Lab assay of single mutants.
Amino acid sequence: NQASVVANQLIPISTHLTLVMMRSEVVTPVGIPAEDIPRLVSMQVNRAVPLGTTLMPDMVKGYA
């Protein structure tokens, strides 16, 4: 099972991601792979992401 990136807190819209905001967890459905966490740092979310939500490629500007 592959770990995905999950929000560690509420991430407001247009926030630049930091390591503190993300954790890796095995979830269904599978989202952005956990090994991409370093790549996600300083990218922006294009919507509010609630605590515990799996980050999907379409939620992060410039990821997909």
Score class of each variant (00 low, 15 high):
Q2K: 07
S4M: 02
L40C: 03
R23L: 05
L51W: 09
A48F: 09
V5S: 02
Q9R: 09
V26L: 12
D58S: 11
P38N: 12
V45H: 00
S14G: 13
R39S: 11
M22I: 08
T53F: 10
V5K: 01
M43N: 04
G31L: 02
M21F: 03
V49I: 12
V49E: 03
A34M: 08
T53I: 10
A34D: 08
V20A: 14
V41T: 05
P12F: 04
T54I: 08
T54Q: 03
P12S: 07
M59L: 04
Q2D: 15
V26R: 04
E25M: 11
G52D: 12
L10K: 15
A34P: 05
L55G: 02
M56V: 07
N8Q: 11
G31A: 03
V6W: 02
Q2R: 05
I37M: 12
A34F: 08
A64F: 06
E25Y: 06
Q44A: 15
G31W: 03
S24Y: 10
P33Y: 06
G52A: 07
R39P: 02
M21A: 03
Q2L: 10
R39D: 06
L55H: 01
V6T: 06
R23K: 13
L19Q: 07
T54Y: 02
M21L: 05
Q9F: 12
V49Y: 03
T18F: 03
I11V: 05
P38F: 10
A64C: 14
M43A: 08
R47W: 05
P33C: 15
M22G: 01
D58M: 10
N8Y: 03
R47S: 14
P33Q: 07
V60M: 04
G62H: 13
H16P: 14
L51S: 14
N8F: 04
T54R: 02
Q9D: 07
G31P: 01
E25D: 10
I32P: 01
P29N: 05
R47P: 02
R23A: 09
L10H: 12
N1S: 15
D36A: 13
P33N: 10
T15Y: 14
P57K: 06
I11A: 02
N8H: 06
M56K: 07
I37H: 00
N1P: 13
T28W: 07
N1E: 15
N8V: 07
V27C: 05
N46S: 14
I11Q: 01
M21Y: 05
Y63N: 04
I11Y: 03
G31F: 02
P12W: 04
M22N: 02
V27P: 00
R47G: 05
A64G: 14
Q2P: 14
V26E: 15
N8R: 10
T53Q: 10
L19V: 08
S4Q: 01
P29V: 06
P50R: 09
P12Y: 05
P38H: 15
D36P: 00
N8C: 11
V6Q: 03
R39H: 09
M21H: 12
L17T: 00
V45W: 00
L17E: 02
A34R: 05
H16E: 11
A3F: 07
E35F: 10
V45P: 01
I32H: 02
R23P: 03
E35V: 12
I11W: 02
Y63P: 04
P38K: 10
L55I: 12
Q9H: 08
R39F: 10
S4K: 01
V27G: 03
V45E: 02
R39I: 08
R39C: 12
V45K: 01
V20E: 14
P38R: 08
P33R: 09
P12V: 05
L17S: 00
N46K: 09
N1Q: 12
L40T: 01
P12Q: 07
A64V: 12
Y63I: 04
Q2N: 14
I32D: 00
K61R: 15
R23V: 07
K61A: 14
P57N: 05
M22E: 03
E35I: 09
V60I: 12
M56L: 11
L51G: 11
K61C: 15
R23W: 04
V30I: 14
D58V: 10
R39N: 09
M56R: 08
L19H: 12
I32M: 03
I32R: 00
N46T: 10
Y63C: 05
K61L: 15
V6M: 04
P50Y: 13
I37V: 07
L55W: 01
P57E: 07
Q2C: 11
E25Q: 12
D58I: 09
V41W: 00
V6Y: 00
T15H: 05
D58T: 10
N46E: 09
G62W: 07
G52P: 00
D58K: 07
T54K: 04
V26P: 08
V45N: 02
M59W: 13
P29G: 03
S42G: 15
L19P: 11
V60E: 03
M21E: 03
N1T: 15
A3K: 07
T28K: 07
R39E: 06
T53S: 10
V5R: 01
H16L: 13
Q9P: 01
V6N: 01
S24I: 09
Q2E: 15
T18A: 11
A3C: 10
K61D: 14
I11E: 00
V27D: 02
P29H: 05
S14H: 15
N46C: 08
R23Y: 05
S24Q: 08
N1I: 15
P38I: 11
V26D: 15
L51P: 08
M22S: 02
V6H: 02
L40V: 05
